[in-house]
Design a protein around this nucleic acid. Structure first.
Lengths: 228, 228
DNA sequence: CAAATATAATAGTAATACTATCATATATTA
DNA sequence: TAATATATGATAGTATTACTATTATATTTG
């Protein structure tokens, strides 16, 4: 990644925000601090009044960027998935062998985010924790279908599709490429969550980790090309 | 199931409620109507004032049974998982062959709830929809660890463990029995959700279904006993 | 029938999730 | 550089939520 990310802007559906937070200092401060705050106090306790106070700005100013905290969550998680997608495409585009490509993709998508790239106002380590703890809440709502039609989840959907395509490239006859791809992405978040809060429900600690687990899971499901 | 369920009471952690809703008519009405309401309007819009009005009782009366709507959700989802556990144990206890047993368990746990048993005030079909749409919200909170210590999730954890044991009985050398069990349970809810809202992210519709998908996924991961 | 208990009705509070208005600071452009 | 546009800040206000507290009225039980 490194320097490259400096000039890359994750393209997020314009309907998610009122004013592009990337366009101003205040906007970037909103995004930056909201990540710290949501991470520290959880999405439920977080609100725009607290955020305004924290950034020494005002509640009403925050509302000029995002309609409400749900939209802000959509923004943050879209950014995260866009960032993962970028890393995925970048890291796999020059790999020819479909199995190697898929293996690399799975590693990227299932491993814990450990380092903050430090090139933007966004702390990727904390953001990935937010995604683990809060992403489901962004779509488990009564408004999913309308918001989906508005395109609020395109980036995530594209990521699932990319993974699904890689799966198909290893085994074109497999019946459940989309289900497997969505299981890996969602299941990975879940295993990371269990590791932190329900240890007994996962084996991803000392003697195992999500990457190894999901890599096995996927490859055992696929009939690999006998020539490959 | 049928008549048997009439006399079976799902044992739920007493700390989840203030007064056992099973002990009174009002309590059962609270549970019964809350399922209909949460299903119809979603957990976010649901509240005790609306529930009180709907059952022609009072907000304050509802608060004598449950501290807040989060506890009510814990109650409902615990009941659901207790019910699934009961069905699981009942349906598999006389199966000797580990593979057959696991197969049966997977079918039970991944298939959509289609029929309301009609023996209690609880509509299992709607409750299963609530679990699909809202279960994650019951544990994706800042209070998980304390609530987990209080035993609010024991039933679910026991269910995962049971499934994990069945997996181990098919392949004792498999490294990830707990992860696989938790993936199946959580992943199954997710696939059902995707089927309803993000069709393109799943293959569980015309030519596939969660049971078939997860059965394949699990058995492809396990080295079956060559003698079995 | 009295006493205990459950439920209902009403009121009240602090916090949330906003909207509206106006003042002020900063940037743009004529 | 003055005029103007735009962004931000400060303050106030509203409806709703998530409760708590109190008192009144049923209903059950001893």
């Amino acid at each position: 990644m490194d320097k490259l990310l400096q000039s890359v802007k994750i393209g997020i559906n314009e309907k998610i925000y009122i004013k592009d937070p990337e366009s101003t200092t205040l906007g970037r401060r909103i995004v930056e601090e909201s990540i710290l705050m949501i991470n520290a106090m959880g999405f439920e306790s977080f609100n725009f009044k607290k955020l305004g106070a924290k950034i020494k700005s005002n509640e009403s100013s925050v509302y000029r960027y995002f309609e409400n905290k749900h939209k802000l969550l959509l923004y943050l998680t879209s950014w995260y998935w866009g960032w993962v997608e970028y890393k995925l495409v970048f890291a796999t585009h020059n790999i020819q062998d479909p199995e190697e490509k898929l293996k690399k993709a799975l590693a990227l998508v299932t491993s814990a985010t450990k380092y903050d790239s430090d090139f933007s106002h966004i702390n990727e380590v904390l953001l990935s924790k937010i995604v683990i703890n809060e992403y489901s809440k962004s779509y488990l709502t009564k408004e999913v279908d309308t918001e989906n039609k508005e395109g609020y989840f395109v980036i995530y959907k594209r990521l699932v599709t990319r993974l699904s395509e890689m799966i198909k490239n290893v085994d074109g006859n497999y019946t459940y490429p989309n289900s497997l791809a969505s299981t890996v992405l969602e299941g990975s978040l879940h295993q990371h969550f269990l590791k932190d809060h329900f240890e007994s429900l996962t084996d991803c600690h000392e003697n195992g980790d999500p990457t190894d687990y999901f890599t096995q899971l996927v490859f055992n499901s696929l009939n690999k090309n006998p020539n490959g």
